[in-house]
Each structure stands twice: as C-alpha cells, then as structure tokens.
Design a protein around this nucleic acid. Structure first.
Lengths: 344, 344
DNA sequence: TTGTATGCGTTATCAG
DNA sequence: CTGATAACGCATACAA
C-alpha cells in the first residue's frame, strides 16, 4: 500500500552483518553485546539513519510511552502554565504528551464516549477537569496511574492549593484593612461543566466571613461566566447594590482585571474607594498592580507529572497506584489594589 | 511481564462466535458484514467493553493516527491560542496531538538530536519555531506533510499574517495622527533562538518610515527579550533619549503592556504625551484600551491543522505534499492609546 | 459474507 | 555473547 520507505531493524542487521536481535539489544543499550559488534551496529544504524519504530516497539513491550494530558481550556493562562510545567517533566523522561482539550461540550462528550486514552497512554494527568464519578470510573484503567491538578477527585492523587486557606488569607488581608463589607466575584457552570473550584472558593468565602463575624449578604456574591469582560459585568452589579461592598475578592485574577476596569470606568479610586484582590498571580497582575494570592501553577503541573513518572518507574505496570494529595502553598502578594477601608 | 488485562479482538471473536477478521471488519464499519453478525459482534465488544489497541492497529496499517505540534513557548498567550485552534481540528478528525514544547535550549537540542517525531506522526505542525535549513531537513520525513504557522520556512506551506503590511498599517495610523518620530520595541534572540518575526517587523518598521520620508533613527528601535517587564525597560530607554519619540510601536501587545506601565509610572499621559500601538489583540488589550493590529491567532492554528488534515486525506501516504502559503488578514483596532501627536 | 493466513517492526525467550 | 523464533494485536489479501 505505502512503500516501506522506512529502514527496518532487519536492514540494519544485514548492513552490520549480525542478527536482528543483536541490533535490538545494542540499540537499547543492553550490556551483553561485544564492543566491536556494538560499534558495527551503531555505525550501520547511523549510516542508514535508522530509528526504531516506536509503534512496533510498544506493541512488543506493552507500554505506550505516552501520557495523556486532559484540560478544559488549553488556551487560558492557568492551563497553559500547567501544561508547560507538566510537559517539561514528561519530556525529560522520554514520555510523549497527548493533549486533550475538552472545552466544548462536543469534545468532552466524544472523549467520554470513545475514551481515546484507553490502551494509548501509560498514565493520565487531568487538569482541573471535573468528572462525575461514573465518568471517572469509565476513564480509569487498571494499571494506568492517574493524577489530577487543581482539584480533588475521589480516589485520585491530587496536586492543588488549599482553597479554603487561600480564600481565608485573602479575606483576612481585607478584614485587617478594616473592610467589613466584602463582595465576591465568582464563576458559575458554563454550558459545559461545573467547576468545583468556583464552588469551593465561594463556600470558603462564606464560612470565613461568618467566622469573622461579618455579614454574608447573598447579593454580595455575584457569579458570572469566566472572562475578563464578565469580571467587569460582575463588578457593575456589585456597584449597583444599594449598599455596595468596600472590597472585592475575585475568584481569579482575570476576573479581578475586569473588576479594575469597571471601577476605573466608574471613576472610582482603587484602593481609595474600593479594594480588589485576586487569586493566581497572573502574568499581568504585577503590571496592573493587583494584590493577589499567588499560587505556583507551573510547579503544580510539574509536580503532578513527576508523581506519575515516579509511579511508572516503580510500580512496573499493573500495580495499584496510589499517592497522597499534595498541597502547594499560596502566598499573599500585596500590591496596590488593596488598602484601608474608606471611612464612611 | 504484565498480565494481559486487556481483552483482545480474539476474545471478542470468541465471545461472538465469529472470526477475528469479522470482528475487525465490523468494528471498522465495513459494509460487507451481515447485519445479524454485526449485531452479535458489537454486542460482544460492548459486553467485554473492548476497544481496539491503537498501537497494534497502527502497526498493521502503517499510519500513526497522530500529529506533532511543535511550539517554542507553550505557556505564552499566542501559542496557547494556536494550540487550542489546531487541537480542535485535529481532534475532530480523530488525530492525536503530540505536543512538543521546545522553549529551553536543552529541550530543543534533544528534539533535534533524537527527532522523536520520526515514525511517530502522520503530520507535523510547527508554530513559529525558527529552524535552520539543516535542522529542517533533518526533521522532514518523506510522506509526512508539514506546515508552519507564524512564519515562512523554506518549502513548507505556511499560515501567517503579512508582517510588512501589518506593521505598515500600524505605522500609517500613527503617521496619520501626526506622529513623525516613532519608536519601536522589538525583541532580540533570547538564549535559545532567533525569532524571525522580530526581524521582519523591525525591517518593515524601517522601510515603512523610510518610504514615508521619516527619519529612522537607530536609537528609536530598542530590542529586549520577550516579556511585559522588558517592555517597560525598553520604554524607559526610549524615554531617556535626548529626543524621545511621540509614539511607540510594540512588536507585540505584551510588550505594549509594559510600555503602558512604564509611561504611567513616569506620569505621562497616554495618548496625550505618547501614543502606543501593539500587534496581536491579546485578550487583555481591550481591557487596557490598547490600540493594536488584531491577528486571528486561533484561526491560524485551525487553518494550518485543516491543511494538514486535508493533505492526509487526499495524498494517501507518501505523495509529495505541497500547499500554498495562506496569508490571514490583520485589522487595525483603534482604542484609547493612540491619539494626535502632541504639539511641540 | 466469512474464515484463514500472513505481515507490520520490535521485544524477549531460549538455545547455542 | 549471539542467533533463531515466538509473541504483541490487529489489518488484509486470498480463499472458501
């Protein structure tokens, strides 16, 4: 059908005057090969510019040499960072990275229906994708270690931040500045999926305020779809309240950016009239002088990848993989968007 | 070694009481299978929750079912967008996406040395990675179509914008506003690679000004590594000139962001004292009210992917693949950072 | 329409 | 240390 334009191991063997088995051994760096034979083989391979067929190799060994990376929105800042972090670790360990971007409903459904990962990867890394238990059960494969970054998922080791502590720290900062009426910009399920992180941060917001003895007015929490512009809209909603907050906690920096824009447009002074704090420490947060809770994003991707790589190395194959959840620390980065509550 | 926890086609065949060949035919949707047989097979596959081993399948067919996506900086905005655009197209066509992030020197070198794409992908998409001719020759594989987005590369179909026209349009906007002394923030080779786009935009800047009969003072072009902060530094340098420009063209929006920050810090009014224009229309550009040349980034990724998919479908296998370069249009988006040149 | 048999390119087992 | 040879799991030409 297609001409065998590839040189095969057999070609190399013939060229070197040895058996195919010897070629295989040599190329895999096994020690039980005579030095001069090894040289001949390597030379032959070089001459023919031969490379092993990873596919054939995998069929024979039973491993795929690849890992699956599943993300909801590959083009967003957070996910890009995680992907980059994970990629470098996988790459270092000779693993190929299969990227699955499940942002839109169709892609996600196809993924769940056809389960393209089956028999195709040695490990799977899920980034902040909320899967229902049933879905997850379908995705899991015996002997294929799986890890998740960004959120907890039943039975799967996670690498994430402490959402509650992070939110609490952010709010503590505002409270210490004298703020008593604090609004929150949150995200809600978009058409495709419900994001647990949003829920957690919202919940933490409420419980923290309650613990601090502050009122938790329901209208102080406004939920919008993700996006800078929606951060603006949410802020407008907060400003439209009869009794607006004096400070805003944004679920993520991108939403906070929108908040800053809205405030500026309303002619309000930040932080004079309104303080704003975000979560992430986005690349642009320093530029916008945004106070935020920094989380190490790239590192979380790398860390999760490392856990999987280790699992692959130790539990040769089909052992039950298990690892503890790793909590990475977040840091309060105080910049210019938070200040004392305005005297009223 | 590892227990064959997988059900194989043979298992399904036995379960359905047919031959393995029939199972194969059925599962691939071939028509020459009796209806009731087909049902039995599908039922058996369902019962055993069987999925074909893509690896075995590929060994048999000779195709890999995967494409390689090579990018220099996966975590940057531009590349994230391109990846997302390409991913969706590849995914729709049942192709797996192997991501290679070659940002750091070591990764790039490893990539060039070991050529992990060989025999592993059906097509390759390179995103704005400058490869020398020799490198490229090493990467190309007969019968494996290749495309590039973001820049021209000898002999490879590209999807990109018209750099010269884009820069010219941006400058025209400034000139029309009365600016006569226009600075440029450019990037230079970072430790790893030389980015041709930077060179092109710089060249276009010079020739456009020259054509317009404006002076092209060398010190008006300041080159820095990529990054927002470096955009700030570059701007400081421009401001420090004995005769600063009245407008700045930034090679990309991210650099422009830095410029805006620097100007603000210097207490300069934008666009009263200084106009700024970027290239990209980054997600945050609207927020920062940055005038810019918009380029369709996601679309370029999708377009290039589509070209490759088409090539795979038509030129069954090892034909010589060729396609024309596609130029996508850019648009001037006038926002608030450009205005009339200050009277002097 | 269905079954048989061979090949895909390696790895790995066993003799030698 | 080296060479046959049997898997690996599926696709497919060839027969039936």
């Amino acid at each position: 059908m297609n001409q065998p334009s590839h040189v095969s191991m057999e070609d190399v063997a013939r060229h070197a005057g040895v058996s195919i088995a010897t070629v295989s051994r040599t190329l895999r760096g096994m020690t039980n090969v005579a030095d001069h034979t090894r040289r001949r083989v390597l030379q032959a391979a070089e001459d023919l510019s031969y490379v092993v067929s990873p596919i054939a190799s995998r069929l024979a060994t039973g491993t795929t040499g690849a890992v699956g990376l599943v993300v909801p929105y590959a083009s967003r800042w957070y996910f890009g960072q995680v992907v980059a972090g994970a990629e470098s670790v996988f790459r270092e360990n000779g693993l190929d990275l299969l990227l699955y971007n499940l942002g839109d409903r169709a892609a996600r459904q196809r993924f769940l229906d056809r389960r393209p990962l089956r028999r195709r990867v040695d490990a799977t890394l899920v980034v902040a994708m909320p899967f229902a238990d049933a879905e997850l059960a379908a995705l899991r494969q015996p002997g294929i270690p799986m890890a998740v970054v960004g959120l907890d998922t039943a039975g799967i080791p996670a690498v994430r931040i402490d959402e509650a502590a992070t939110v609490a720290c952010a709010l503590r900062h505002l409270i210490d500045l004298g703020h008593r009426r604090i609004g929150m910009i949150s995200t809600y399920a978009d058409q495709n999926m419900w994001l647990p992180v949003a829920h957690q941060r919202r919940t933490s917001y409420l419980s923290t305020l309650r613990t601090a003895g502050l009122a938790t007015d329901p209208e102080l929490v406004v939920s919008v779809p993700f996006g800078i512009h929606n951060g603006e809209l949410a802020t407008q909603a907060l400003l439209a309240l009869e009794q607006p907050p004096t400070a805003i906690l944004a679920e993520s920096d991108e939403l906070a950016f929108g908040a800053l824009a809205a405030l500026r447009r309303h002619g309000l002074d930040v932080p004079g009239d309104m303080s704003v704090i975000g979560i992430d420490d986005h690349d642009l947060s320093q530029l916008l002088d945004l106070t935020t809770m920094r989380q190490p994003v790239t590192e979380q991707g790398a860390l999760a990848a490392r856990i999987l790589v280790e699992a692959l190395q130790t539990t040769e194959g089909a052992q039950a993989f298990t690892a503890p959840t790793t909590i990475v620390p977040t840091t309060l980065i105080i910049r210019g968007t938070t200040g004392p509550a305005p005297a009223r």
